[in-house]
Amino acid sequence: MRVLGIETSCDETGVALYDTQAGLLADALYSQISMHAEYGGVVPELASRDHTRKLLPLIEEVLASAQLSRSDLDGIAYTAGPGLVGALMVGAATAHGMARALNIPVLGVHHMEGHLLAPMLEDAPPAFPFVALLVSGGHTQLVEVRGLGQYRLLGESVDDAAGEAFDKTAKMLELDYPGGPAVARLAERGDPTRFRFPRPMTDRPGLDFSFSGLKTHTLITANRLREAGEFDEQGRADIARAFEDAVVDTLVIKCRRALDQTGLKRLVVAGGVSANVRLRERLEQETAKRGAQAFYPRGRFCTDNGAMIAYVGAQRLLAGERDDSTMKAVPRWPLAELMPPAA
């Protein structure tokens, strides 16, 4: 079954073609980051307008690169949520229109399920069951994954997401949007011994996260350096390093606990922050120590993309699940509400 995947939940237009036998055939992405950078964050109306401009050309590009025509498609999957409702609507409407014209099934899928299962697109995919750490700009969650649609939330952030904390720290350090990679780069030159930031919520049991206190701590430290006239390149790098170490440590501690608690040996790490090199290094050490294994999607499938949507859609469409004639756009949609495919 050849499935077209469409992702338009936020500020990237992603399109991909996945074949349940041959695997990923093609994928293309258009990022609006440079446009939103001028505004210091995502402007929902501009994001939606851009999806409407870019979606069909990307679909054509993907079909051309796989040397297929639209009539070769067997199904269409699109991100139905969570996300920006106006942006979601573009993908939903286009997917439904195209599917109707081609007389093929269409299905709205969950964006975070896409992230959870993105490592399945790799050559050595993890087997079920596994623990997944989802760390992105909007989410920080630990999830126990027993199979397609069988998700149990183990813990999540009670305030800011880890990626959001990276982005806010970037602003405090006068770095450009998006902040995560910029903070990580600056941290490379930082002295890990100069500051020690708190590891929030690690001193008590449980798998929830909190990053807003860390953010305040970072701000106070930045202000203190500024007053002391030490807010120079080195001072900012030292803060970046202390911040990154605190986030990475916190994430690693909770992952370890989640593996202990579930008794599972496989850890999937997905979402934009999973691109962070220091996080990967620490998780490698940690999993190796306990005879467990960590799995990551390739770099470009860590952030939003069409491939993960095509993959999840293909699994569910194959099982007979499909939309009726209503286009789905669900801005808030807890992952735990998902079910195994409903035929």
Binding site: T52, M98, R100
Partner: peptide
Amino acid sequence: RIAAGVAQGLAFG
């Protein structure tokens, strides 16, 4: 954008 999406999808398909 809903009308554009559906119409574009139908026309493209």
